[in-house]
Design a protein around this nucleic acid. Structure first.
Length: 212
DNA sequence: ATGACGATTTACT
DNA sequence: GTAAATCGTCATA
């Protein structure tokens, strides 16, 4: 017997247990996979992330130790998904990391679609009434676009990425090509001294990011 | 019970 | 560039 395809390895609890600054950088180049009820795989390479540092971080939902039904997944084990609803219409997905009970996470901000691109395109076209056709680089170029394209909503908040059949992260055997660019986070102007801290990373030169 | 506010996206001037 | 869309969540009462 011989192997015909690439070795596919799923991220483990240990992989997710890094601190958020480390994990935000390691997740870039990995593959986020959403498997639908039909068995259809929607996936993409993560190209942009942000770290949220927990109780001290004024931009984090867990700032000050805030613990509510919404933020509860942030207090779970590393590898838990934290999906929240915002602006009355959008969902955003985080990967909880660090030690269990420490509410730190990485926000997934952009993907380069790989599998199920037609389905992702359909999901992204459905809800918007745009005139111009959707560009390939605009399918998952933002945190809410990822969730719209990959059919991720609050029903997946608290989902265990280590065990779930519906949502997981895979190592990419063919490592990422390119360097990381580090900038302040997007949309956290309310966070005072935390607004300007460089906690966002994007893959240099990649056209699928939300912005430069 | 009420009011203010989003870890955004889209359309439009 | 600006502004609208749209409602769950959270703090306050």
């Amino acid at each position: 017997m011989s192997r015909t395809g690439p070795i596919v390895t799923r991220w483990t609890r240990r992989d997710f247990s890094a601190d958020p600054v480390t994990l935000a950088q390691r997740l870039i180049g990995a593959r986020l996979v959403r498997t639908l009820e039909s068995g259809c795989r929607l996936s993409g390479i993560i190209v942009e992330t942000e770290a949220y540092l927990g109780v001290l971080d004024k931009a984090a939902h867990s700032f000050g130790g805030r613990r509510t039904p919404r933020t509860e997944p942030m207090y779970g084990p590393p590898g838990t998904a934290y999906v929240y609803f915002t602006y009355g219409m959008h969902h955003c997905m985080n990967v909880v990391c660090g030690a269990e009970g420490e509410p730190v996470a990485v926000l997934l901000r952009a993907l380069e679609p790989v599998e199920g691109i037609d389905a992702i395109h359909a999901n992204r076209s459905r809800q918007s009434k745009r005139r111009a056709p959707l560009k390939a680089t605009d399918l998952c170029s933002g945190p809410a676009k990822i969730c719209q394209g990959l059919e991720i909503d609050r029903s997946l908040s608290g989902c265990d990425l280590v065990m779930s059949d519906r949502l997981l992260v895979e190592h990419e055997p063919n490592k990422r090509a390119g360097e990381l660019v580090n900038t302040p986070r997007i949309g956290v102007g309310y966070a005072q001294e935390w607004t300007a801290k460089p906690l966002r990373w994007r893959l240099s030169g990649n056209r699928h990011v939300s912005r430069n």
